[in-house]
Design a protein around this nucleic acid. Structure first.
Lengths: 317, 317
DNA sequence: CTGAAAGCGCTTACAG
DNA sequence: CTGAAAGCGCTTACAG
């Protein structure tokens, strides 16, 4: 990579002059300016950002890192939207990461980025990773994940599950099944626990639990089979809306009046008339952003834990 | 801000030792390590990223900036998803910006960020801005915007409009209206031009054009009024799916068999059975990422212009 | 209008 | 295991 020194040598001027040209060209003669610009182009010079920042002394970092799971679900985008709006309002920017394949390497890279703060969306951290964050004195926060020793903003998934159960119990349903994500996770175990406990409290136990990958088509197949095998089923609680959509389709094809309840309340759910548990996705992002900002700006030692309540949205499914 | 020097002074060691502690603590006695760590905590030290980068000599930038309009539409998220997947595959990261209020300041900031490349989504650039990019020798690319003098990846909106017209003509419709976005833009003028020209070629002219803000409710109101006032209307072409959803609702409430065609093919459109023109949003992002990467890596002087074809998706609206 | 020099905050051989 | 020193690539008064 060519440096300012190379430009200075090629154009026969001092490095100070090169710098002046590169910074708008004030106090430089037209002739010198041209010479320097020619050299810049010839050597395909690109300024070194780190050196500039250091020399200028403007160290204030305004970038917040966001680490997401590989699979970018529409639901995450709602969160990101909330983050984005709260952050840009304060002139912070969002840097998106994906720990993907080589988690370890990528993680080190993220920590070393010198970010003002890091947000982990639905990403649990190992003890080793936490230590690395500590060593670099990074401020960080979990979103959509609960850890009682860390800062976090999350949905009360257990309460959400209970809400779904109460709704079904209110409709006097007793033959109820659960359709979930084949990949286990904190969100699912909480939702299911809340759902099951609430049913049990009222003397109802689940007919069965089935698991698939989160995919409308897969869920359609599974739901269809389930409805055929269990014609007396009165209600199905789905781990998320996307799975519930498959249920909606199966019910339409097969007929029958099984009640379907989802979880998330994605945009399409309103149009489809799906009864569901609304997660405050946007708000989770928004509050998460506010929270990391206060962590950065006020530097309080106490941990913040914000638990947001989900909400039952009754439509006609 | 405390520097490594302050830590060294407070803990009574040399700066080299402080640095060693901060970089994993190899070759440091336990005692020294503790002293230094205490000082780090006491002074609330945070490493200066610019200085680190400069000293380490690892300048390779792997961050791509993405500049979006203020309003983050679901459609943009599809694009971002495409970008994200193509970029993370090559270990690049995404930095999101919003030129918002103080465009000029923010723009300067973006240019000075030292990004590997910058992607402008649906954001036209002024001559002055282009010059500033040039001066900093930034690689950049338009997405979802056409400019014949720049690198860009965009949808053939004109062809999309024509596709919608052909579909309606094929159904022998002749009393046709257009409902658009009240904010003018290149996308809209292209779509409408393609639509109108194709109709005209077949001797059909638009009954009327109406404009609202892009909002389902607003479109519902407008569509309802339109359908009431023009009961003989046979088709409505909407600027985008979100507007078309309002039309779908109005038609449902009012009854009547007016044909509705949208543009975008958002996720919900499949579930709602909306006939629409599918924009290759994901692919635009994906190709945009590939394109900026090749710009960065091969440094070709020629401009790349990639025009992606939209596609008619016939459902039952 | 221009050049030489100091300095930004760190890392990293090097010598001990 | 530790300290002193050079150097990363730039900017910015300063003197001319």
């Amino acid at each position: 990579m060519a440096t300012i020194k190379d430009i200075a040598a090629l154009s026969g001027v001092g490095i100070g002059t090169v710098s002046r040209v590169l910074n708008g060209g004030v106090n430089v003669s037209r002739k010198t300016l041209k010479k320097v610009m020619d050299a810049v182009r010839e050597l395909n010079y690109q300024p070194n950002h780190a050196a500039r920042t250091l020399a200028r002394g403007n160290y204030s970092r305004t970038t917040i890192g966001v680490v997401l799971p590989v699979i970018a679900h529409p639901f995450y985008f709602e969160i990101i939207k909330g983050l984005y709006e709260a952050l840009t309002e304060e002139n912070y920017n969002l840097l998106l990461f994906n720990t993907g394949n080589e988690r370890r390497t990528v993680f080190e890279h993220i920590v070393q980025e010198g970010l003002a703060g890091i947000l982990f969306i639905a990403e649990p951290l190992s003890a080793e990773e936490k230590q690395s964050l500590e060593l670099n004195r990074s401020r960080y926060l979990y979103i959509d994940y609960f850890d009682e020793t860390e800062n976090c903003v999350y949905t009360d998934n257990r309460a959400g599950g209970a809400l779904a159960a109460q709704y079904m119990l209110g409709k006097k349903l007793s033959r109820i099944a659960y359709v979930g994500d084949i990949t286990p996770g904190q969100q699912q175990s909480e939702r299911l626990a809340g759902f099951r406990d609430e049913l049990l409290k009222n003397g109802v136990s689940l007919v069965c639990e089935k698991y698939v990958n989160v995919d409308e088509e897969k869920s359609y197949q599974l739901s269809r089979k389930l409805m055929e095998e269990q014609p007396s089923l009165e209600g199905i609680f789905y781990f998320c809306d996307e799975l519930a959509y498959g249920g909606l389709r199966a019910r339409k094809v097969l007929g029958g009046g099984v009640n379907i309840v989802g979880f998330d309340d994605l945009l399409a759910s309103g149009y489809l008339g799906l009864t569901t548990i609304r997660q405050p996705a946007y708000r989770m992002g928004f509050e998460g952003a506010k929270s990391i900002l206060s962590l950065i700006q006020t530097d309080v030692p106490e941990k913040n834990r914000l638990c947001l309540p989900p909400e039952l949205v009754i439509r006609n499914s």
